[in-house]
Computed example of a mutant assay.
Amino acid sequence: MVVPAGDRQKLDVAEQVRSVDPCGFFDQARISTYGQISTLGPSMSSIGSCEVGFLQADEGRRYYLSHVIVDMDSYPPNDDDPSKQIAGETVTIDGVRSSDGDCAYKVPLRFPVSAAESSQNPDIIEVPTLSYASVRAALITPAALGCELVENTVTNMVTMFRENRIPRREALVDVPLPQRSPCELMQHLPSKYTVDKFDAETQPYDCKFFLKSGSEIFGNDLVSVGFRLHDADRAMATFGSFESAQIAGKPVLIDRNTAVGEPQCAIRFPAGAVVDGYRPGTPATESTKSAARSQPMVALRAQCRVTDDLAPIAMELFGANK
């Protein structure tokens, strides 16, 4: 499949984002001066994230977990969002995540661009494709401390990008699936399908494309593939209209929606080992330990006749758990 240059750039940025270890932006020595670090690993909100949890005490000397979170998969800011200069970079204040008093910023990820990737036409000024990360605090007291630690993390991020010292995955937390692209599925389609349209985006963990089957009965079919994280203890628990099933002898959750028109299927399956961000020996409740354990999952959605064909392929490709 031939990908236009503009789309190729987006895919290259997404690949770069997947290679980054978000845990590497934290100054753990500094954070630990405010409380013992108890957890370090991906946040349940995003498979491309990392959160560091450190212990603070309330007035009754009861410990609770405070967090600084880096998410490499953030939506771009709006044009009218307020901004601020940190370490010489213009970052955007995340109004939604800052609404409860916690500091939150969106930071542009300026990956190095080699000379070979620049425009061959000197009369054209190319605007690089940008992706954004979010950095935020959660439950840190006082709020000023949360802002201090967030801005310190932003400074680290900006400086590491500027000096080409970007932390790469493999260092602190081993989460294999976030280094893969969900768009890999397009290279393993059955011969009866061709990709008719591909929505290339910089989002590193979501992929959408339209398939043409050659049948006169069916039109183009939208396929969506994504990587997620779920609570490890409940990753395969049924919920809503999702039911337990097996495909190729492996467990899945499947929702067959037959309410309107052609049946639509949503399938989820675990891929890879549980990630445990809890640091043994540090004070923690059982709920805190449980919350630090997450299961990487693959989500596939399309017409059921399409998922019937693609699900076994996706499960083999991404290493579905038995």
Rank of each mutant, 00 (worst) to 15 (best):
P178A: 11
S181I: 13
E184T: 03
L185C: 09
L185V: 09
Q187T: 02
H188G: 15
H188K: 09
P190E: 06
S191P: 00
D196Y: 15
D196A: 14
F198W: 13
D199F: 11
E201T: 06
T202Q: 08
T202S: 13
K208F: 00
F209G: 02
L211S: 01
G214H: 14
E216F: 09
E216I: 04
E216K: 02
I217F: 08
F218V: 13
F218L: 13
G219F: 14
N220L: 12
D221Y: 08
L222V: 04
V225N: 07
V225S: 05
R228Q: 11
L229Q: 06
H230S: 09
H230R: 13
A232T: 06
D233R: 05
R234M: 15
A235N: 01
M236K: 04
M236T: 06
M236S: 04
M236C: 08
T238G: 11
F239N: 06
S241G: 07
S241A: 10
K250D: 13
P251Q: 11
V252W: 03
I254N: 04
D255N: 07
N257G: 03
T258D: 12
A259S: 12
V260S: 05
P263C: 04
A266M: 11
A266Q: 10
F269E: 00
P270H: 00
A273T: 09
D276A: 15
Y278L: 14
P283V: 12
T285C: 08
T285D: 11
T285R: 04
E286M: 09
A292S: 10
S294G: 02
V298A: 10
V298L: 12
V298T: 14
V298D: 05
V298W: 01
A299T: 12
A302D: 06
C304F: 03
C304H: 04
C304P: 04
R305L: 07
R305H: 11
D309P: 01
D309K: 01
